[in-house]
Simulated assay, not measured.
Amino acid sequence: MTTKFTARGITAILLPLAGLTGLAGAVQAEEWAPTRSIEFIAPANPGGGWDTLVRTTSRVIQSEGLADQNFAAINVPGGGGAVAWAQIANDSGNPHKLFATSPPIILVPLAGTSRYDHTHFTPIARLITDYSIVLVQADSDYQDLNDLFEAMRERPSMSVGGGSAPGSMDHISIAGVASAAGLEASGVNYIAFSGGGEAMTNLMGGHVEAVITGAGEAAGQLGPESDIRALGVSSPERLGGPLAEIATYQEQGIDYTFDIWRGVMGTPDMPAEAVAYYEDLFARMLETDDWQEARDQLGWIDAYQSSEEFGDFLDAQKEEFSGVLTELGLIR
């Protein structure tokens, strides 16, 4: 049996093939990779949760050879994140700028201290869950959270420091656990510093009685020879690694937990192909040995969400936090 190809038949075959070639070209044209160093911004001073996330992820990406371009960690402190967000908002469409994010991207605008919230930026990926931890000086008389809250009842002016703005993450976290322990949440004398590192410096200098911060950023500073000691952690169960000996709030009879999700966002209107590149990059990073070792040391829990999932999550968080802040009398 023979097959005869006419000119019309050959054309009929070649046209679909040309269409496929054109489609492949379009897909290839949509592929994107950074052409210069990525500015990876921590919207606070060194030593806090954003800074820890930025520097840890940048180091793992480099050590694992996941990207051809360098991720340059940059600290832009001020306003509980508001100073950095204002700068980033003015760089619309830049695919070479990212920033670390967590609940303050929602809480600070709700409290009225930033005109920019999560809706002004491009969600890239949620990466991990961290938890709050309450710290005191190593020689403090307070042995657990109940001791601390009893002292706060007797001396309402007693100060508790944190690395986020008034009405933001650390404030709402300590106000929430104090309320669960029977205190007036709005009466907690919260002192805001420009990051967890500065808050701990003030704790060690005796300028505040206690500090609430992220467990991950405190993990490396705790130990038998440390100048600070932990009274409790906001996780539902004990964490691993260097935080394994720290009792949860619930173990101390205080029915309260607080999650600190952390992730990455980009500039407004970041091109979709750049978003796809970073989504894939961070997903691959979470699978590496270097990341898993660092994550376990910091007491973090992987909680990856894609750009779309993260965006939906942020919208839901805004609704939830609006109610909580109103309840606690912290919303303006």
Rank of each mutant, 00 (worst) to 15 (best):
D51L: 06
P242I: 08
M265R: 09
R126T: 03
I331N: 03
V83P: 04
G162M: 06
I260Q: 10
I228E: 10
Y277T: 01
I41G: 01
A100Q: 05
D91W: 13
F121E: 09
L239V: 12
M265L: 11
T6Y: 05
A192E: 05
L298S: 05
R155W: 02
S306I: 03
A294E: 14
A215D: 04
E309W: 11
G206A: 10
I106L: 05
N90L: 14
A180H: 09
G214Q: 05
T56F: 12
W261A: 11
D312G: 04
V233F: 13
D296K: 13
S186T: 11
L135E: 08
L231D: 08
L110G: 12
A84P: 05
A276V: 06
G197N: 06
L243Y: 07
T213C: 11
L23H: 02
F193V: 03
G9E: 05
A33E: 15
W291R: 12
L20D: 01
T213K: 06
M158K: 12
G206K: 15
G223T: 13
G195V: 06
I124K: 08
G25S: 08
Y190N: 05
E279Q: 13
F149R: 11
E320A: 13
F282R: 07
V27Q: 04
L148D: 07
V60M: 06
A33V: 09
A218Y: 15
N189H: 14
S168I: 09
E273M: 08
T213S: 11
L239R: 14
A72Q: 13
R55M: 01
Q252M: 10
D255Q: 14
R295L: 04
E31F: 14
Q297K: 12
R229N: 10
A272H: 10
E245K: 11
M158H: 03
Q62V: 02
G240M: 07
P268N: 01
G205E: 13
G263K: 00
M204W: 07
L135G: 00
I191H: 01
D290N: 15
G162K: 08
Q28I: 08
T52R: 07
G80M: 03
Q28Y: 12
P224M: 04
V60G: 06
T113S: 15
L183D: 08
S307Y: 00
T3F: 11
G205L: 14
G48T: 10
E273N: 15
D170V: 05
Y278R: 10
P123A: 14
W291N: 09
M204R: 15
I105P: 02
Q250G: 14
T21N: 00
V160S: 03
N189Q: 10
Q87F: 13
T113H: 15
A24P: 01
R8N: 06
Q317V: 06
G241R: 14
L243I: 03
E287Y: 00
G80I: 00
